[in-house]
Structure formats: C-alpha cells, structure tokens
Amino acid sequence: MSESVSLSLRDVHLAFGHHRVLRGVDLDVAQGATACVIGPSGSGKSTLLRTVNRLLEPDRGDVLLDGRSVLGDDPDALRQRIGMVFQQFNLFPHMSVLRNITLALRRIRKLGEDEAAALAREHLDRVGLAAKADARPAHLSGGQQQRVAIARALAMQPQVMLFDEATSALDPELVKGVLALMADLSSQGMTMVVVTHEMGFAREVADTVAFMDAGVVLEAGEPAAIFESAQHPRLRRFLSQVL
C-alpha cells in the first residue's frame, strides 16, 4: 500500500449561489489518523468531504496533503490519490463486481487484464467477498455492495480515504460489518476522514472528532473531550439528541 499522508483544510469556503455551505472550515488529520466529522444534516459535512478531492472546488481556502497545497494539481491525478466511499455505494450496475474494481486499475493505472484482476481479487478477499467477483452489484446486499465499493477505492492504493455516511443507507444488521472493516482500515494506518452519524464508531475509532454546524467546525478534539466534556452549547444539544 502507498504511504498514507496527512491532510489539512485551511479556512475552506464554498457557496452555491447565495447559499454559503462552507464558511471557513479548518481540519487537521495527521498521517495515519482517522477524523470523524459529525453534525446535523445540512451542516456541510458531505460538501466538505468533496472539497478534499475537489469534486467541488473551494471558493477560498486551501487543501493540503502532506503539507503541500493540492489546489494547483491536476484534479484527476489528485483523485487517484484519494479514495472515496459514498452513502449510496455507487457501484457501476452494468459491470460485474470484479470489473467494478478492475476498470480504474486498467484504464487509469494502465495495468494489464491479469494483473488488475489479481489485485482486484486480493482486495475482494480483504473485504471478505472473493466469492462474489462475478456477481452483478444488484445481486448483492447493501452491506456487500458497500464492502465492494471500499475494495474498489482501496485497490487504487490511495493515500487518504473519504467516507461519506458510508453506513447511512444500510439496513441496521448490515452496518456492523462495514464499520468493522472501516475500523480495521483505520488501525492499519490509513488516513481517513469519516462523515458519520455512528457516534459509537466515532468514539471508538476516531483520533479526532470534529463537530460541524452551519458550515463551520464549532468544536474539534479527541473523542473523549467531544463526547464527555463538550464545550459548545450547540454540540451539547446535538449530542443530547443523538446519544
């Protein structure tokens, strides 16, 4: 696996028309650390995640990997270094599970068919789905689809992984398996930014928890500090609702 890198967001602003979604966000994730971003719906969490791999371009501010700004980089090359997992899995439904993973390996990484397939099977094995290589995504459960999506992102050997409410669309009994996989990845030293409503996961796995509301990070710190001794009244109110 490629070495993971540190990630920093500096004063990131983004507006859709007059709607200011991000209003100066700062976030630091050390190399190999996991940051969980929590907060109410519409607070800008998912938008923030998309500024990291520049699916959305910030209006102002900076995004740094390993201390170096990436805003001048080629966005396509940047995205190859950053894996992303979505709420709705977003597997390509017209391809087998294996092809979902090999597509980018072959077309972007320019690996040969066999090499790509071998690498894909290795990652499918890692998420426990080696037997499903030839199945279509539609024939998999939501949890299995999300694990394939994680394998698809990991196969590109990213230096950072982004998770956008990866378990929010899953049936409750399938959430655990995906969270376990993410915790596993975190413990192996992947730099991760995880937008989640799973407070248990944030408490157990995160090195840093950032609470977002109305486009800014109101409070950030170690999980214990956030969950046991929250300072900001808005965060306390939020926690009292969700815990």
């Binding site: 699916l55 979505f86 390509f92």
Partner: peptide, 13 residues
C-alpha cells in the same frame, strides 16, 4: 449523477 461522481472520484476524466 452519483455514477458520474463515483467515476470522477476514482480519477476518471
């Protein structure tokens, strides 16, 4: 639209 987003996130032009 999420399909395009997923493909772009992998690094496809």
């Amino acid at each position: 639209a999420t399909q395009l987003e997923a493909a772009r996130a992998l690094g496809f032009t």
